[in-house]
Design a binder for these strands. Structure first.
Lengths: 193, 193
DNA sequence: TCACGCATGTAAGAGGTTACATGATTAG
DNA sequence: CTAATCATGTAACCTCTTACATGCGTGA
């Protein structure tokens, strides 16, 4: 009977607009980037669970040139549950970041390949940052919505700031690691070629 | 035959020093905060898997006043594997943060309880930040190690910067959300008491 | 012709959490 | 007297990923 975190994620997207499972999956991997990238194999079963719990309904649409689809809509019960859940306490997120473990082993590896690894991740997060900055520009084009706390755009802007901050901070850290490795290489003995 | 992420996490801790499973579990939930908080029920089986793979060995220690224990030590094979793994490419982490989903639903809830939620998380991350800053002061007390790229302290300092940045950024975001809700409340009609 | 977008799903397995079991010592 | 610390583990369960299955239309 309980709703999973993914279930709430889907509900919160459906609270704004009706979508198919496919749409929801694409949304979760778009640069508009809400939340994280869930697989279709998890989304579809989750949607039918939400449906059996009466939190969403769907309308089957028959198509000729494309596969048939189900457009899901949140119910009043779903909306009510989401509103209650939204302000209830949560535990802070658990971050399982493999790069951090690798960083912890840097003392036992050659600095050059380590730098390469961190340069790659710096670039990755800078690219993500740019994508989010584009979305930011789009949102800031309609400032009325950003000041209306009852507008979904307002909430989207809030989570966008989180994404921006996260990517910026991560890129800065990667850059700092590369610099630190550079610096320490000058102090240690040069490699034997 | 493959080693899991937790397996590498344990190996990277054992590369510095020998520990019991219990020690490793405590380390992972200490403010010295390496990585994330793994459960003992996951650590113990993982250690025996690493042992069966020849990546660690253990020495059984019989105790009178406390339960017997096993002190695990990394093997040469384990060390070699860890060094290779440490600079191999990784995917960026997937962040599944329930608070971000809740934030996405803020447009449909009362601002007051929402502020309370974000104030709580701001305090949480500020407290974490302080803990990390204490560790930072401890590490900076011995600056020679911080400039030696072959010292585990060097690597610990690197991941500490990540933790510091993460907590700082998260706290700033929470604060910003609270302020934004404050601001918008002044624009909307006052609640009917 | 081949891959991509549309669209929904099942099955198997890996990873992680919660609950349970045991038992002595020590601090409040 | 109760809770915490030390210390290792098993069993059941939930969550998430990977692989598989199907099939039409369109653009390169």
């Amino acid at each position: 009977m309980a709703v999973t975190t993914l279930g709430y994620a889907l509900l919160s997207l459906l609270a704004v607009k009706s979508y198919t499972g496919y749409d929801l999956g694409r949304l979760m991997r778009s640069p508009i980037s809400v939340f994280w990238e869930a697989r279709y194999s998890q989304i579809y079963p989750e949607l039918s669970r939400l449906e059996s719990q009466g939190l969403v309904t769907y309308q089957a649409v028959t198509q000729h040139d494309f596969p048939d689809k189900k457009i899901y809509t949140i119910t009043d019960d779903g909306r009510a549950l989401l509103r209650i859940w939204a302000t209830e306490p949560v535990d802070p997120p658990v971050i399982r970041d493999e790069l951090v473990i690798k960083a912890y082993s840097l003392w036992m590896v050659d600095p050059e390949p380590a730098q390469e690894l961190f340069r790659y991740h710096e670039q990755y997060h800078l690219a993500k940052l740019q994508q989010y900055e584009e979305v930011q520009r789009d949102l800031e084009a309609s400032p009325e919505a950003l000041n209306d706390p009852t507008s979904p755009t307002f909430a989207q802007y809030i989570i966008l700031q989180r994404d921006l901050g996260f990517e910026r901070e991560y890129a800065v850290w990667c850059h700092w690691v590369v610099e630190r490795l550079e610096q320490t290489m000058r102090f240690s003995s040069p490699p034997i070629n």
